[in-house]
């Protein structure tokens, strides 16, 4: 454990959280529309995984904001995307669920549950074929581990022996349905363990996530084989901006919040003198400014011209 890592963790987690809180606010003001899936509470999982994985290619489902931020994509481009502006990372055509940036090896932002997992197997295959060594990581929710896409991908990744990290963020719920009501296993890593090495970790602890993912990265690169991590985490907010039913008890939410990943990090880091109060305050200020600038950028950016509707359908336009 070192100081600079702890500093990075704090910066990205704080940036991710403030970004989403602000996105929530802007949604309520009507500046953002559609579905807005927030990952508040899951920052330890998202930031730890991205930083732990380092270089390489990355796929995720629609709960993609904090991953994109940890990946280093500018909050300005992301906020502008949420505002539907032409300056957004997907030109305002994708919105919250569809952040794409090939420059950052970030392949979405997919809104069809489980559909991106086979893509990751395919990309890992291509990497292996082309002799490139960076691995591929695919993040997905607990809900997708019951789909055919998931099982087919486990099998094929093992058959092809590709450098792919399956990263399952188990927040226990798929919308309003708790995982144990629709899955034969509550411990999801068990679904993978006959195909590859599969482990379960505490996703509320960014250090643990980071450590597990970086070890996994080493493994897939050196062995050229797939690997499976299940991170246990929790989303504080509704599935999207609103849930239409009650399915979680306030008590459950309270217990989860006691393990808040940011508080958790600070507690540990202060105890081991990895972070100082001054540093944290400085980051808070910096983050506040960055978010303010991102919103300003989004507000001041133009909407796409109407012709944009017909663009980007084919490469040859």
């Amino acid at each position: 454990m070192n100081k600079s890592l702890a500093e990075k963790f704090y910066y990205y987690m704080k940036l991710g959280r403030e970004f989403e809180l602000r996105a929530k606010e802007e949604y309520m003001k009507g500046n953002i529309g559609g579905f807005l899936h927030l990952a508040i509470g899951e920052e330890g999982t998202h930031v730890g995984a991205i930083l732990g994985f380092g270089n390489g290619e990355f796929f995720v489902h629609y709960r993609d904001h904090v991953y994109a931020i940890a990946r280093g994509i500018s909050p300005k481009l992301l906020m502008a995307e949420l505002f539907g502006k032409i300056t957004g990372v997907s030109k305002g055509k994708g919105g919250s669920m569809h952040f794409y940036s090939s420059k950052f090896n970030f392949y979405g932002g997919n809104a069809i549950v489980g559909a991106h997992i086979p893509h990751a197997v395919g990309l890992a295959y291509a990497k292996k074929y082309l002799g490139k060594s960076d691995g591929v990581m695919v993040a997905f929710g607990d809900g997708s581990t019951n789909s055919g896409n998931f099982y087919e991908s486990l099998n094929l990744a093992a058959v092809y022996q590709v450098p792919l990290l399956f990263f399952c963020e188990n927040n226990y719920y798929a919308i309003g349905t708790r995982i144990d009501r629709v899955s034969a296993f509550k411990d999801l890593y068990k679904k993978a363990k006959d195909y590859m090495i599969a482990i379960q970790i505490d996703g509320m602890d960014v250090f643990e996530v980071y450590r597990a993912v970086s070890l996994a990265k080493e493994y897939i690169q050196e062995e050229g084989k797939p690997y499976f991590i299940e991170a246990l985490t929790y989303r504080y907010e509704s599935h999207s901006m609103s849930d239409s039913g009650d399915y979680r008890s306030p008590r459950e939410l309270k217990i989860a919040k006691e393990k808040d990943p940011i508080d958790n990090l600070l507690k540990k880091a202060f105890k081991e003198s990895l972070l100082t109060k001054e540093f944290v305050e400085e980051i808070d200020r910096k983050v506040e400014i960055e978010i303010e600038e991102a919103v300003e950028f989004a507000l001041n950016s133009k909407e796409p011209d109407l012709e944009e509707l017909y663009k980007d359908i084919f490469c040859e336009d």
């Binding site: 949604y27 309520m28 529309g33 559609g34 609103s242």
Partner: peptide, 8 residues
Amino acid sequence: ITMPRLTD
């Protein structure tokens, strides 16, 4: 504080 949009 404005009237928030809480659903789609």
